[in-house]
Amino acid sequence: MQAVVNKVIPFSSVDGPGNRTAVFLQGCNINCKYCHNPETRALCIECGVCVERCPEGALERGSDGKIIFHPEKCIQCDTCIHVCPNNSSPRTAVMTPEECYKKVKKQIPFIRGLTVSGGECMLRPDFLEALFKLAKQDGLNTMIDSNGTIPFWEYPSLLEVTDGVMLDIKAFKNEDHVRVTDEKNEIVLKNAVYLAENKKLYEVRAVIVPDLYDTKSSITQMAQFLAPYLEIQEFRIKLIAYRPMGVREEYAHYQVPSQNYLEELADILKAYGFKEIIII
């Protein structure tokens, strides 16, 4: 079993509780307009555009036609991902769960856990399960960061080795969700309920882009919808301000919401009984 890994961040302070290693899988099934790492969206089709453009010669086409990446030559100028016509990256690595876990294990005992994100990591539930089983042998906490479009209830054995899910609700109204992502949110909301009922919902995230959808009514409806589940187990809400960094040029024109506006949204959530609200 193998998966395409976009990158491994050894110490992350923003991907769940405490210090964790974050693994980013390549490939996504939806199209968030504000996606800030669009190079994780598609798998590489070996077109070779990046090979020509790399100023350091860190990319080369092998005799089998595959693109070879030489990390030691890379200066992180990101030219390859900017010129990619396919929302992908040549700087990925194909790994087995064991190979991937080796890159996580190095950080023990400095980390408390492992978070897998993407792309959309739930496109590879088999890989996640195998990886988390390894992590559990060392007592690591395991988290999934997901856009919620893949039904979690179909993977109970994965959830057995998963401590929590950080779930995006990118818009509460279906038509808004379609506008933001090109996909419906019926499964997302069902996932929220399923995870909350099974005490696996650690955090719900919303990216706040007032120009793109009615964020205030979306947050209000979301609060209303989720509040009953706080009784089962507390979970936190993260409000993420849209920022143009990394966003594809055609979508980089949205307004960044003000801190005051974000706090207004947090107040709405507080009124519904949410205690832990993080604004970033």
Binding site: S13, G18, P109, F110
Partner: peptide, 22 residues
């Protein structure tokens, strides 16, 4: 430490814990 860590002080404490084991 980057300012974003203000929201996650456990990040620093985890590093301290691991460091002292090491």
């Amino acid at each position: 430490i980057d300012v974003t860590v203000h929201k996650n002080p456990e990040f620093v404490l985890d590093i301290v814990k691991g460091s002292f084991v090491k």
